[in-house]
Design a protein around this nucleic acid. Structure first.
Ligand SMILES: [Mn+2]
Ligand SMILES: [Mn+2]
Ligand SMILES: [Mn+2]
Ligand SMILES: [Mn+2]
Lengths: 226, 226
DNA sequence: CGGCAACATTCGGATGTCCTAAATCCGGAT
DNA sequence: ATCCGGATTTAGGACATCCGAATGTTGCCG
């Protein structure tokens, strides 16, 4: 069975599991260096933690190759992701935070709140399906909805699409995107695209704008309703 | 000046400073064993931490005698106390917690919230002066109101007094007190007192009850308004 | 096929926090 | 004045987490 004795799920452990979950979900290999980059730690630190988490049955580690979450690891990761996204949603809905400032606060609170508080926040919010960035919120049981759609950078010209999700944590970029009207729920239409990774021009609720392909790649869209 | 390089104010450090503040304010000597009892740690652990905090200029330590907070230590302690009490107040006001369940949650959240979030909660609450237990909330500047009054165990018979503050953390006791109507703001009158530390009988908004002197000592009262 | 650069791991060490066992101190009772 | 028990500190060690330097591994590319 699970072997090993309990062993506290610390803030560090939760952040590692969450990072590995994020990489896996993004289709990227969860290598030592990718985890280290995400958590801003040295590679040896990650190597050591990976070994410990594997021994605890939270990770499957193939040396020199990378790691994958076990069922137990995935469960813990999703629990932390749920808390993170609930906290972000709550702070935006009830305490005047904006989508570019909630991340850091949630990064700490996700480790400090009880199940009780997480569920009370969820209830107060009406059990939302997504957070302010359009990221799906796992259920308390660990189910999580797929987000379907294509990056804005791939949207064909002339088609009205709705912004579903913005894969961006940087506050400045988020503020910039908001100023362009590129927020979840906005309906936008690509009006032009210049070659060689040139800017994409589009019309949004906030007017006509151009964005670089880097930013556009982080914006997930799907065909607009109706 | 402050010597030493920054050095993180961790959760442990905040809890030590808060415990020492609590003892000092209660007029009790902040000895190694008193701190250890409050934090449920061994005496050697406390000895070691006391040494470190003294070196950092947060405590004044007289070996074999006890410790006192320096100005810097007191400032940090009050900051944590403010957060603790704001969190308790917020959870009760907005998230359906009751006064017997907020303490543990606040004990963790007090270390995780930013100044920003603390002030947003304070604003949402209308900058309250006291928390759900009647404990005064320090200002962001570190000022804290005195709570004046006498323990219910000392209140003379026949005088209407108002409950100001309940110095109790135990959930069961708090629930019991609430069931007797002994909550901050309640107006009560002692109707009898039996000798040899016997029970105190009193009338409260919830009827006529008797409480032991131990519990009664934790309830701070002052003459009722009007 | 062999060499090399990139990536991963191991090694040795620092720091923070906690513990038990052993020494030491201190104040009150004899 | 001396002794003793309780409180405190010191000694020695565990554990989690991090680091830089040294060492291994892998796969590509010439
Ligand atoms: Mn985090
Ligand atoms: Mn988010
Ligand atoms: Mn605490
Ligand atoms: Mn309180």
């Amino acid at each position: 069975m699970g072997a090993t004795v309990a062993s506290a799920v610390t803030r560090s452990v939760e952040d590692y599991l969450k990072a590995i979950y994020r990489l896996s979900t993004a289709g990227q290999p969860a290598t030592t260096s990718a985890i280290a980059a995400l958590l801003e730690l040295s590679a040896p630190s990650v190597s050591g933690m990976v070994k410990r988490l594997s021994e605890q049955g939270l990770l499957e580690h193939v040396p020199y190759r990378g790691v994958a979450l076990t069922a137990a690891g995935r469960r813990l990761a999703l629990r932390t992701v749920r808390r993170h996204r609930l906290v972000e949603s709550y702070l935006v809905a009830y305490l005047g935070y904006s989508w570019d400032t909630v991340h850091d606060e949630a990064e700490r609170l996700e480790h400090a709140i009880s199940d009780e508080l997480a569920e009370r926040m969820a209830t107060a919010l009406g059990n939302p399906g997504v957070d302010p960035h359009g990221d799906p919120i796992p259920t308390a049981d660990g189910d999580i909805a797929e987000v379907t759609g294509m990056p804005l950078s791939d949207v064909p010209e002339g088609v009205a699409v709705e912004v579903r999700r913005v894969n961006e944590h940087d506050a400045e970029r988020l503020r910039y995107l908001a100023s362009l009207g590129l927020v979840p729920g906005a309906v936008v239409t690509v009006t032009g695209r210049l070659p060689f990774d040139g800017p994409i021009t589009l019309s949004t609720p906030a007017g006509t704008h151009a964005v670089g392909p880097g930013l556009a790649a982080d914006i997930v869209c799907s065909r607009a309703a109706e």
